[in-house]
Design a protein around this nucleic acid. Structure first.
Length: 364
DNA sequence: AAGTCGGGGGG
DNA sequence: CCCCCAGACTT
């Protein structure tokens, strides 16, 4: 008679990992953890979580911070709209909710960046309310347990799983139940080679019984993603400073800095693409005189090869487009600014050049 | 319902 | 190389 919920909660209380956000009752801290954990593994999040809370210990500290400081703390974690939205939502909490994370559905889901998953997680874990979460772990555990072979890429399948967990979640300790299902999915009911021998649900699991854990959950094949060639310009001034540009907030990687450049179009060389992009973005005519480095990078929905060229301004004074900002920075101060990964890789390479190398390019 | 939005770790 | 990850938002 022992239910799904009794078994998995008992298992959780014996086997749960010792994670930083499990040491606190502060809704603000739990909130930070849930935003960081979106599409991101626990081990990746932990150091970011610790540093973020050291820098922004309360919602007031976050609300008063500059966006650049928030994004610098988010640098490398990815999905930067999470950081921008979190910062925005912290101001809403201070201005509209007197500094308290709201504890009712309509209010908490009105905050930027809090969707159905995060709302359920916060309401159950921080406020002991009965809202069942559905994330990738829950979908995997329940689809295997019930032998559901529907395509988990479809929203109807997620809705079906939501109805099932809505039905399973107990009145008592709903937060532990939610964390238990996710913990099982993360540590036992893993995507590949699940450890069914250690699973408290083994005897009732349909996928395990039928040896179908390789087929369930089923996910339809992913589409091919494009591969773009990106040309960027490295421009030095007389003071050995590099020109960097701020990406607009609404764009991909918004609020982060980059070396100016863009996508290579058909029927143009990479050098031509570099000159065209710098002309369009900065209004300058440049000479593209040597390649610094190529690097490959994968984003969520496309891949790039980034080609970085040393450039020299032949004509004009760099001026950003209206929505943008530019800045000249030395390699010593460049780390004060948030950059996406591909640019960080370039910066690391530039720092490995000694000053003679750098001035060689300057004098050229 | 489909597309956009990062980066890292593991097989 | 591929896949997946404590998803949200826009259209």
């Amino acid at each position: 008679m022992s239910s799904f919920s009794d078994k998995i909660v008992a298992w959780y209380q014996e086997n749960k990992r010792d994670l930083p956000w499990r040491k606190t009752d502060d809704p603000y801290k739990i909130w930070i953890s849930e935003i960081m954990l979106q599409q991101t593994r626990v081990d990746t999040v932990i150091p970011y979580y610790e540093r973020f809370l050291e820098r922004f210990p309360t919602v007031y500290d976050l609300a008063e911070a500059d966006q650049q400081d928030v994004l610098k703390s988010w640098e490398g974690l990815g999905y930067y709209s999470r950081g921008r939205n979190l910062h925005h939502a912290s101001k809403t909490v201070v201005d509209k909710f007197d500094g308290n994370v709201p504890s009712v559905w309509d209010e908490i889901t009105s905050l930027k960046g809090i969707g159905p998953y995060t709302a359920s997680a916060l309401l159950s874990i921080a406020f002991q309310k009965k809202y069942a979460v559905v994330d990738g772990n829950v979908i995997r555990v329940l689809s295997r347990y019930y032998g559901i072979q529907d395509d988990i890429r479809k929203s109807t399948t997620k809705n079906r799983i939501q109805e099932l967990t809505d039905d399973l979640i107990p009145e008592d300790k709903p937060g532990d139940f939610n964390q238990a299902v996710m913990e099982l999915g993360a540590t036992v009911c893993t995507p590949q080679n699940p450890n069914c021998n250690d699973c408290p649900l083994f005897v009732d699991c349909i996928a395990a019984k039928r040896a179908q854990t390789d087929e369930i959950p089923y996910k339809s094949p992913a589409k091919k993603i494009p591969h773009h060639q990106i040309a960027v310009g490295l421009i030095l001034n007389q003071k050995n400073e590099l020109l960097i540009a701020l990406r607009p907030n609404e764009s991909m990687l918004g609020g982060l800095w980059e070396f100016p450049g863009g996508k290579q179009e058909e029927d143009e060389t990479l050098q031509e693409a570099t000159a065209r992009e710098l002309s369009e973005e900065l209004g300058v005519e440049v000479e593209v005189f040597s390649k610094f480095r190529d690097l490959r990078h994968a984003y969520s929905h496309f891949k790039i090869t980034m080609h970085a060229f040393w450039c020299r301004i032949k004509n004009g004074d760099p001026k950003p487009k209206s929505s943008q900002k530019i800045k000249w920075v030395s390699l010593d101060e460049i780390d004060e600014f948030p950059f996406p990964k591909a640019n960080k890789t370039l910066i690391k390479g530039l720092k490995n050049l000694d000053k003679d190398d750098l001035s060689h390019y300057l004098d050229n």
